[in-house]
């Protein structure tokens, strides 16, 4: 996990989002409990391109087409991709789910 301070207060993580990240990561029991909003998908969670593709698909199936991680990443450069966090994923969730 990152030891960086989150830049601003963020909502608690959606439990299903956490579960989907853990599933895509093939993570062991307990791993998901350590997830924080400011954890970077690449540098902290060490998700590779194949795992991120799986996560994008999980999000789309569960939360619908607006939870478009693949679309979000398409528009980002290398630095922005490296900075992408769990909180950024949460912002993709439909409003009624993100609360």
């Amino acid at each position: 996990m990152s030891d960086r301070e989150p830049p601003h207060p963020v909502a608690p993580l959606h439990p299903e989002l956490v579960a989907l990240i853990a599933e895509a990561a093939g993570a062991p029991p307990g791993w998901a409990e350590l997830l924080t909003p400011d954890a970077r998908l690449d540098g902290d969670l060490l998700l590779d391109e194949c795992e991120l593709a799986a996560l994008a698909e999980h999000l789309r199936v569960r939360f619908g087409p607006t939870a478009d991680l693949a679309g979000l990443r398409t528009g980002l450069d290398l630095a922005a991709l490296e900075s992408l966090t769990v909180a950024d994923l949460q912002e993709l969730l439909p409003e009624e789910d993100a609360r």
Binding site: A25, G26, A27, P28, W31, L46, D48, E49, C50, E51
Partner: peptide
């Protein structure tokens, strides 16, 4: 390596585990 590992798994010639996270049990 992740792409080759995915190809092996898709072909059915092996399994892929997450290097950083896999437990001894898994």
């Amino acid at each position: 390596q992740p792409f080759v590992a995915a190809q092996v798994a898709t072909a059915g010639a092996g399994l892929r585990v997450p290097f950083a996270r896999v437990t001894p049990e898994r």
